[in-house]
Amino acid sequence: MSTLSYAVRDSTTMLRRNLKHILRYPVMPLMLIGIPVIFLLLFVYVLGGTLGAGLGGASGRAEYASYVTPGILLITVAGAAQGTAISVAMDMAEGIIARFRTMAIFRPSVLTGHVIGSFIQTMAGLAIIVGVAMLIGFRPNATAIEWLAAAGMLAMISFAVIWFSVACGLVTKSVEAASNLPMPLILLPFLGSGFVPTDSMPSGVAAFADYQPFTPVMETVRGLLLGTGIGHNAWLAVAWSVGITVVCYLWAKKLYNRDPIR
């Protein structure tokens, strides 16, 4: 067999291993869905009346449910990142990883197994959140193509964030540290256009909000699903996603190839 087919086979084996872990111990996936659902309910039913009125025009709670959903989707992605970092850090502490390192297998497969496993988990989580949002008033007007494009956009940012969290899981020495490192990501939708438009923020905060990676993603998803303006946000979002993915993939690979005992 060629190197490439070994790479595919070993990655598939590792993916199967990670999916078994997720299915057998579903605490993490449940939390990953639970937290965004609570945020969604909180923001729509507790804060939604006031925040919706603040959007301007004749809008209220129902309109706010639509506005906030892309932000909640990014919260889901950020929450999944934390789960990935924890499971990578936990795995690295296990003796079996040392065994994998002494076997002639495609080396990054341990990581790709985690990445693809987390990716499947994140996409499933996003689908569930969209379903819940639609039940409580999210009213997208997208065509099939726009749905597909929005899914693609979310897939790209998820992939980027997952590689970032894999690197977080590798760089830390303990599981606790690994769970804290991607925590600030949860704040990014707030410090962006996730919950309120950025032009309502003080200029310093607004500047950060406009230029951080999650804002163009949220604007793109919002535009695709709700028909608001996208402008150059789509390109920016794609560029951020690809850039983060490449940098974090290389970083994670370098971290994994270090001597495990130093």
């Binding site: 291993r17 078994k20 872990h21 296990e94 003796g95 040392a98 065994r99």
Partner: peptide, 20 residues
Amino acid sequence: DAVRDAIGVTGQFSAVDNFL
């Protein structure tokens, strides 16, 4: 990798997957 193909290692700390 040629070495890895020829050897087997059982370390001091059990190298089994606890979730399987």
